[in-house]
Computed example of a mutant assay.
Amino acid sequence: MSNIGIIIPERAADIGNFMVGRLLPFIEKRSVGPFVFIDHMGPAELKDYQNLDVPPHPHIGLSTLTYLFEGAIMHRDSIGSALEIYPGAVNWMTAGKGVVHSERTPENLRHTDKKLHGLQIWVALPKHLEESEPTFHHIEAKDIPAWEEDGLKIKLIAGKAFGKESPVPVHSPLYFIEIINESDESKTVNIGEHLYGESALYILEGQIKNDGNAYDPKQILIAKDTKLCSFEMAANTTVYIFGGEAFPEERYIHWNFVSSSKELIEQAKHDWKDQKFPKVPGETEFVPLPVSSLK
Rank of each mutant, 00 (worst) to 15 (best):
S2T: 15
I4Q: 08
E10A: 15
R11D: 12
D14P: 02
D14S: 08
I15T: 05
G16A: 06
G16P: 04
F18K: 12
F18D: 13
F26M: 11
S31I: 12
V32E: 00
P34W: 08
P34N: 06
P34V: 04
P34Y: 09
V36Q: 04
V36E: 05
V36A: 06
G42H: 01
L46N: 15
Y49P: 08
N51R: 13
N51D: 15
D53F: 13
H57T: 00
P58I: 04
P58G: 04
L62Q: 08
S63N: 00
T64H: 02
Y67Q: 02
Y67H: 05
I73V: 12
A82V: 06
E84L: 01
G88N: 03
W92V: 01
A95T: 02
G96Q: 00
K97S: 11
G98C: 14
V99R: 06
P106L: 01
N108A: 11
L109S: 06
R110L: 03
H111N: 13
T112L: 12
K115N: 12
H117A: 06
L119R: 06
W122L: 09
A124Q: 01
L125Y: 10
H128P: 02
L129K: 09
S132W: 11
A141P: 05
D143W: 12
P145M: 13
A146S: 13
A146P: 07
E148N: 11
E149V: 07
E149N: 09
G151W: 00
K153R: 14
I154S: 08
G159T: 00
G159C: 01
E165W: 10
E165S: 09
P167A: 03
V170Y: 05
V170D: 03
H171F: 14
F176A: 12
K187G: 04
G192N: 05
Y196A: 10
Y196R: 11
G197E: 00
G197P: 00
L201Q: 07
K209R: 15
N210S: 14
Y215W: 00
D216M: 10
D216N: 11
P217Y: 04
K218V: 13
I222A: 09
C229L: 15
C229E: 15
I241A: 04
F242M: 06
E249W: 10
E249A: 07
E250D: 12
E250R: 11
E250S: 11
W255P: 00
F257C: 02
I265T: 00
Q267A: 08
A268N: 13
K269W: 09
W272D: 04
W272T: 02
K279Q: 11
P281I: 05
F286S: 09
V287C: 04
P290Q: 11
V291F: 13
K295A: 14
